[in-house]
């Protein structure tokens, strides 16, 4: 919950307003923090003795838990938007081939 409070504090500061230059730096900070987080996670993973054996097991779980939420979300959003949002025509396929 501390993370949420910190995000909210950032939101208030962003809403009040910051110079444009700060926003450009802010975007770079996001990329740097994400890269650092992932690197740190990789370090803690790599330092585990059974890492490669665990990776094989995690691969299956990760595959299941990426595909099924995508399928579930797609089905739910399709039916909800068909029911509650104004209809949109499908795009012509030739537009995508450009």
């Amino acid at each position: 919950m501390l993370t949420l409070a910190i995000m909210l504090a950032g939101g208030v500061i962003g809403f009040i307003g910051l110079p444009k230059r700060v926003h450009a730096v802010n975007l770079k900070v996001q990329v740097a923090c994400t890269a650092l987080l992932i690197f740190a996670m990789g370090v803690s993973l790599g330092s585990r003795e059974d890492f490669f054996r665990e990776l094989a097991a995690m691969g299956w779980e990760a595959l299941v838990l990426s595909v099924l939420p995508i399928v579930g979300s797609t089905i739910c959003v399709y039916f909800l938007t068909e029911r509650f949002l104004p209809k949109k025509e499908k795009r012509r396929h030739d537009r995508h081939r450009r």
Partner: peptide, 8 residues
Amino acid sequence: SVGISVGA
């Protein structure tokens, strides 16, 4: 940082 982007 994400909070700042959303708020702005």
